[in-house]
Amino acid sequence: MGKQKADLSDPASWLDAYGDFLYRYALARVRSPAVAEDLVQDTFLAAYGSRKSFEARASERTWLVAILKNKIVDHFRKSRRESPQEDVGALGETTESPFDASGRWRVGPAPWAKNPETVFEQKEFWGVLQGCIAELPDRLADTFVLRELEEFSGEEVCKVFGITPSNLWVSLHRARQRLRSCLERNWFSRTEKRKD
């Protein structure tokens, strides 16, 4: 899985060596199998076009991931252009907001396990977190993925989506609150019950 070496003069061998890895990478970020496949395809075609500029200082995998990252950003930028009227700030806080009209907790956060390391060691936890990310509305998820998974700066994320910093902070706050609540529902409350 990415450890095999591909022959740069034989692009079909890239597909065997890195196709599935790149697909999983893309799918974790764009969440649509069809879009992820298209991005992998575009990545291989772009890599083929620029294979002469590939420097062996980086691994082939690192090089291909760098191209794929650009394709993912282009995809986010394009999807934003295609639905520019959607207000990021309006997303995600509806009747399920944890706060009441006066801004107090409607349902406060329940206590979680004290030691994160013990949670991180359980592989099922990562599946639950992945499911929670997949449940985010697209626009919240896209900004969240760039900021948290790709570790773009806030400024860079704003540029990609053409949004203001205030909109970004609202969006990230809603995404984090949704994830917090999803983890509480699907992981922490269940693991507490299992202990009882």
Binding site: L15, G19, D20, Y23, R24, E37, Q41, F120, G127
Partner: peptide, 30 residues
């Protein structure tokens, strides 16, 4: 840690390109 962890051991480590996509990409590269 998320990206590293899902790469390491999630059930969907079995998630792969569909045969159709694989064949399409192979043809395009060819």
């Amino acid at each position: 840690r998320y990206c590293r962890e899902i790469e390491k051991h999630l059930p969907d480590a079995e998630v792969t390109l569909s045969p159709e996509a694989r064949s399409r990409i192979r043809d395009l590269l060819q």
